Computed example of a mutant assay.
Amino acid sequence: MQVFSIFGLAIVIVLQIVKYAVILRALLSFLPIQKDNQFINILYQVTEPVLVPIKTFLGRTEWGKNSMIDVSPIIAIFLIWILSSLISSIFGVPQIFSVF
């Protein structure tokens, strides 16, 4: 493996971890879990840098102001998927690491 593909692989793995953290956070939002849980705090620390810019952007749009549901996790997952595919193709990372 080349150095560039190892670097690309590391980025893709981190993106996959963040993607699964976003999915887990979205699923856990339906459960009555207290916010002072340490696991939930770590999950929020990992996902907030990804979700806050999307929420801010959606809040500026007319559709985002009037929406009753939070679609920022769906948009984040889609953007992570695109970024992961792009990095995989640039660095030559095997597709097995960039699947959903």
Rank of each mutant, 00 (worst) to 15 (best):
R25M: 06
I13D: 03
L58F: 08
S67A: 15
I69D: 12
P94F: 04
F30P: 01
F7A: 15
W63N: 10
L58G: 01
V99Q: 14
Q16G: 13
K55D: 09
P49A: 08
K55Y: 08
I80Y: 03
E62S: 14
F57G: 13
Q38V: 11
Y44D: 15
L58R: 05
N41M: 13
M1S: 10
A21C: 11
I74V: 11
P53A: 07
W63C: 01
S85G: 15
V12W: 01
R60Q: 14
W63I: 15
Q34L: 08
T56Q: 14
T47D: 08
G64Y: 01
L43S: 03
I11A: 15
L51D: 04
L86Q: 10
G59R: 07
T47R: 04
F78C: 09
I87S: 01
G8L: 02
K19W: 05
Y20Q: 06
P53W: 06
A10D: 08
I23R: 01
Q95T: 12
P73H: 00
Q2I: 07
N41G: 09
S89I: 04
I54K: 04
I96Q: 14
V14D: 03
Q45R: 15
S88H: 05
M68E: 12
W63K: 13
F100Q: 07
S5H: 07
I90F: 10
S72G: 03
S98T: 14
R60L: 06
I13Q: 14
V50D: 05
I77N: 02
V71N: 08
R25H: 09
I11L: 15
N66M: 14
V18M: 06
E48F: 07
I96H: 06
A21T: 02
S5D: 09
M68H: 12
A10E: 10
I90V: 14
K35Q: 15
R60S: 10
D70V: 06
L15E: 02
V14C: 05
Q38A: 11
G64I: 02
S89C: 01
S72Y: 01
I42K: 10
P49Y: 06
Q95I: 08
V22M: 04
L79D: 01
R25Q: 12
K35Y: 14
F91R: 02
K19C: 07
D70P: 07
Q34R: 15
P73I: 02
L28A: 10
Y44M: 07
G8Q: 02
Y44H: 13
D36Y: 12
D70Q: 07
L79S: 11
V3S: 09
I54Q: 07
F97H: 08
Y20E: 08
V71A: 13
S72H: 00
S72K: 00
I77Y: 03
Q16K: 13
I23Y: 01
Q2E: 14
L51A: 07
F7E: 09
R25C: 00
S29Q: 09
F97Q: 03
V99G: 13
A26D: 06
L15K: 00
P32Q: 06
G8K: 00
V50N: 05
S98R: 03
